[in-house]
């Protein structure tokens, strides 16, 4: 990877890390697409389990879409640092002269680009399946795009804390799900407000505020967690 050289500037190293992550995601299409498939599949289960009446489904749709997208994100988090830990590139990243928090941010951005953003784009389509009215498509997609970026950032802390553990998956969800709750409340709140014709701007603004806060603080926490998990 290109982040090892001491003369390499931060921008170059950052772009190299991002490019590497995106290429890796492109080469493992099955793993990359799994959360999206999970998202679509679980949404298809709800009408079968709950009700097929369009008006009742539409009322539940924002919450169902949001919770399922959250679980799909959780599903993809375990792999965030796993392979890098297994093949040693995580140690290289820790040793790199560039700040770890910045490099980690590139990894999280890649995770959002191949995970959260497609989820947000897919959500309106699945909204059609749940009889969601056309007016809520845009707020739903925007809330998911903003919210899933926060989820990637917060979730990466948990993924970093559990990276060295043999069975970290279950623990990861225990650590991360409580921290996801504020994002879920405001995200589903925005979509729900749009559904009943209310103002959703405040919810989106709060989601943006959460994202700004997570962008500011999470990289440091992720970097510290990785150092703990690798070095002990």
């Amino acid at each position: 990877m290109g982040a090892g050289d001491a003369d390499t500037g931060l921008a170059t190293a950052w772009a190299a890390t991002l490019g590497r992550e995106l290429r890796r995601a492109g080469r493992r299409r099955g793993e990359t697409l799994a959360p999206l498939t999970f998202f679509a599949l679980v949404i298809a289960l709800f009408p079968l389990g709950l009700t097929v009446q369009p008006e009742r489904l539409a009322g539940l749709a924002p919450g169902l879409l949001w919770v399922t997208a959250l679980l799909a994100t959780l599903l993809s988090l375990e792999a965030l640092f796993r392979d890098d830990h297994a093949d040693g590139s995580l140690e290289q990243m820790l040793l790199a002269p560039q700040p770890l928090a910045a490099l980690v941010l590139a990894k999280v951005l890649a995770h959002w680009l191949v995970g959260g953003l497609p989820l947000a784009l897919l959500a309106p389509l699945l909204g059609v399946l749940l009889a969601l009215p056309a007016g809520s498509y845009l707020p739903l997609a925007v809330s998911l795009a903003l919210g899933s970026a926060s989820l990637s950032l917060i979730g990466a802390i948990g993924a970093a804390l559990t990276v060295g553990l043999a069975r970290g998956g279950l623990l990861l969800s225990v650590l991360v799900l409580p921290l996801f709750v504020p994002v879920l409340i405001f995200g589903a709140g925005a979509a729900q407000a749009a559904l009943v014709g209310g103002a959703f701007g405040a919810h989106l603004a709060l989601l943006g505020a959460l994202l700004a806060l997570a962008l500011l603080l999470a990289p440091w926490a992720i970097a510290a967690a990785l150092r703990i998990a690798i070095n002990g």
């Binding site: 804390l161 650590l175 921290l179 002990g232």
Partner: peptide
């Protein structure tokens, strides 16, 4: 150290 960090985040 991991649980200390989680407490700080939480």
């Amino acid at each position: 150290r991991a649980s200390a960090l989680l407490a700080l985040v939480g």
